[in-house]
Each structure stands twice: as C-alpha cells, then as structure tokens.
Amino acid sequence: MEYKASELISKYLRSRKIPSTACSGCGLGMNHKIVVQAIQELGLGVEDIIWGTSIGCAGRQTFATWKGDGFAGTHGRVYAIARGLRVALPPEKHLILTVGDGDAFGIGLTHLIHAARSNANMTVIVNDNLGYQSTGGQYGWTTPQGSKTDSSPYGMFEHNLMSEGLDVMHILKGAGATFLARHVSMDGLKAVETVKKAILNRGFSLVHMPYPCPTNFASRELGSRNQVNIYRWIKDHAAPLGQEKEDTIWATGIWYDASNSRPEFSQMVWDTVDKIRRTGKI
C-alpha cells in the first residue's frame, strides 16, 4: 500500500512544522514518513500517540510535528522521562520516541538500557545520521570505522558500537528489550511493516534507522554533498540479515522479536501497587 505524503501530513502532522527546516537532501523525512505511515496502517489516531523526541537533528526536526501531544526531553534523558510518563499515562496510549544516535547510544545509553530492562512500553526510533551532525559533523558511536568527520580528520579509529563485529543490538537484547530491528531509510515499506510490529509490542521496542546526511557526514566522508552519493553509499552498505556481504555495515530486518513475552513495566507497577493496597504484600 502506497500513501501520498500529503495525506499523511494533513491527517497526522502540524502544518507549521512540515516541511521541516532540515537541510536539503536530508534523509530524516524518509524515516519520519515510515513511522507515520506505520501509524496510519495500524489505524491509530492522533489521540492514541504521545510523541517524544530528543535534541539534535532527529529530535529537533521531529519535535512538534505530531498533531497530538508531544515533548522533547533533555539530551539523552528522554528514556527516563518516558518511563515516568509511561506510569502516569493510560496503558492504551502509545509512546513513540524519535531520537538520534548520539542521544540514544551516547549520552542516553544508560537510560536507554534501563528503559529496555524495565520493558516499559515505548517505541524508540533511533534515526542514525552516523554522528553528531547538528553540531557540524563529529563522529559518534555508530560512525563507521575509518570515517572522516570534523572530529576524526584522520578517520574514526576508536572501537565503536557498530564495528569489528560489535552491534549495539547485543547490548539492548541483553538488557531486556523485547523488540529490536534495523532498517536503512531506503527500506521503505519493509521498514513500515517492522515499525508496525514495534508499535504493537506492549513493551520496549527499538528500531535503528540509519539515514543519509548529505550536508555534514557525506561532505567529509564522501567529499560530496550530492545526495545521490550518500544514498547509494548507505544502500550499498546495508543488506538483509543473513545476506550480509563483506562490506555490510547494517544488517537490516527484525533483529529480535520477543513481543509481549515479558510483563510490561507500567502494567506490572500498577498491578503490584493494587495488590499491595489490597493485601499488604506482593
């Protein structure tokens, strides 16, 4: 099923913030559309979702785009805010967080791990532009090995969460996340299907979605701001799980699906409070 962006926009997004002020050629809009389209296909309304964001490119460009209620947290802390909010919100409300890679895997990793541990019902979409691009283009924790950025002029040489066989997904799985997936923004409708599953998991879901940044990442690493180059570069380095090639950086698809297999955090909290109230014990 293909949707026109204009239909999704008029139904779900605020005209004041769309189109966004993102750089020309930025791939974030593709990720954003994937999420909104997943919401549409699930038949959810504006009132069903509370939309949280972080700061940086992904946070700022998606903040206040949702027609319903929304918030932007301090850098890296949105997962802690979301846990408190989850307890206070009615269980049927969905909590969707569109955040950046620096926010989720750098400054916010502790809070992200604890959100996964608690299996709090939220869908975290990590929009990964391969580093800190809103500050001009410094390397981050998923920047491919060897990449030249403003803070790695000789190439990024540190161990990274997405290099040498490491994958940030291992950490999140170990922490207790119940749905983990990865797609690059060109995955289109395949990514929509995955995000739908992520939203339907009553627990902690995370979808890692690398997207092209022509302005900063591509201009340093590929020496060109031509968006075609970076789109092709990301596509070439992505492959479906099980079909990875030697130069694959991002194995895409559903990485781990244990949807609805562990009790959800807020449900567990309220059930326990209720039991203590009635019986004085758990």
Binding site: R77, A80, I81, R83, G84, R86, V87, T110, H111
Partner: peptide, 12 residues
C-alpha cells in the same frame, strides 16, 4: 534519571 522520571510522571 530520578528527576527526569518525576518530570515524566508530572507531565502525565
């Protein structure tokens, strides 16, 4: 995180 969780609950 503690104070951020309080903010979340207050926002709820």
């Amino acid at each position: 995180a503690a104070m951020h969780m309080c903010i979340g609950a207050a926002l709820g």
